[in-house]
């Protein structure tokens, strides 16, 4: 059965949602890494915390 415009739009909406979730996973990975670092290497985490936060913004821009 041929796809209607409505069918196509629903598929595109589904893929948009998946893309948004994939982008959100970048943030989840960053949060997870920061938690891991703060637990495994707390002294190093304290030293680079500020620059790490700025770097996350740069990373996110790569995926936009």
């Amino acid at each position: 059965m041929a796809l209607t415009e409505y069918d196509k739009q629903r598929v595109l909406d589904q893929l948009d949602m998946i893309d948004n979730m994939a982008f959100e996973r970048i943030t989840s990975s960053q949060d997870s890494f920061e938690r891991w670092l703060s637990y495994r290497l707390p002294d190093i985490y304290r030293k680079i915390k500020a620059v790490l936060r700025r770097t996350w913004e740069w990373i996110r821009s790569l995926f936009r």
């Binding site: 949602m17 979730m21 996973r25 960053q30 997870s32 890494f33 637990y39």
Partner: peptide
């Protein structure tokens, strides 16, 4: 599936290692 995968990556200790996972396509 991507929604729950994000929760897994966020709350798993060292979950960033699962950041590249792609669930089975719908």
């Amino acid at each position: 599936l991507h929604n729950i995968l994000n929760r897994v990556v966020l709350h798993c200790f060292g979950g960033f290692k699962l950041g590249d996972v792609e669930p089975k396509p719908f």
